[in-house]
Amino acid sequence: MASSDWPLWEVFVRSRAGLNHKHCGSLHAPDAEMAIQNARDVYTRRGEGVSIWVVKSSEITAADPDDKDQLYDPADTKVYRHPTFYTVPDEVDHL
């Protein structure tokens, strides 16, 4: 395995307890443990995180952006899924 063959890892950082891990970038490393070490140096030099996940990029399955309309547009017509769709009297509280 030459260094140019090092797999690419996607890096997810939890900025503080109580929040989601959030994708913040990627890096190359020979294995997961070194990917975490590198991610620490690359993405959390200023206390940006309290926890890191790394996932091999090749293990991620992503939806095809060309299917966007087919996948997400049907939700546009289902406005009754939002609370603002319903008319309720102003004088009634806690709705």
């Binding site: 690419l8 996607e10 994708h23 913040c24 970038g25 990627s26 990029s57 090749s58 991620i60 992503a62 095809d64 952006p65 060309d66």
Partner: peptide
């Protein structure tokens, strides 16, 4: 920052 594979591979290319 990259999203790289999510992106470069398998997509529209």
């Amino acid at each position: 920052m990259s999203d790289a594979t999510l992106d470069s591979k398998g997509g529209a290319g």
